[in-house]
């Protein structure tokens, strides 16, 4: 199966889900428990459309996690452990959201920065740090 087939399949699944939910006549809802989350948020009377938005957001985060190297099965579990609100906050932002890393890396980063600044000032003849830099006269 090549990439375009995968995309086709993804789009098809989304369209099927949307058609299924939107084809329900308004006013017809699924019987079931009102969840604790809905009670907290006071959204027990929310529409099917709102549910669809949450469903698609979860799907988006799941797919994004998979693109970031998380195994698909694990991505499902991670998203499942979050509330609708928590999913909404990270949806679409996984490339830019802060992620905790090794702080020592900053020392390397800062060293590179200082090196570059001094290199430029050396080239301009303002400083004389590096013997290999041919100074401007």
């Amino acid at each position: 199966m090549n990439l375009s087939h995968v995309w086709f399949k993804l789009v098809a699944v989304h369209l099927a889900a949307m058609l299924f939910i939107l084809s329900c006549p308004p006013g017809v809802a699924f019987a079931g428990l009102v969840s604790t989350e809905e009670v907290l948020a006071g959204t027990d009377a929310r529409t099917q459309r709102a549910r669809l938005v949450h469903f698609l957001e979860r799907d988006e985060v799941r797919a994004h996690m998979a693109r970031l190297g998380i195994p698909p099965r694990e991505a499902i579990e991670r998203v499942a452990a979050l509330s609708d609100g928590e999913v909404a906050r990270i949806a679409g932002h996984l490339d830019t959201l802060p992620a905790g890393q090794d702080p020592a890396a900053i020392i390397v980063g800062a060293a590179v920065l200082v090196f570059l600044v001094l290199l430029v000032t050396d080239l301009l003849g303002l400083t004389d740090i590096f013997p290999f830099v041919k100074k401007a006269k």
Binding site: L68, I70, R78, A81, L94, P98, A99, G100
Partner: peptide, 17 residues
Amino acid sequence: QAFTPGREGTFPSDIVG
């Protein structure tokens, strides 16, 4: 459960999850 290879780090939301 908590590390994301593509970002070489951990999201706060994954700590919670």
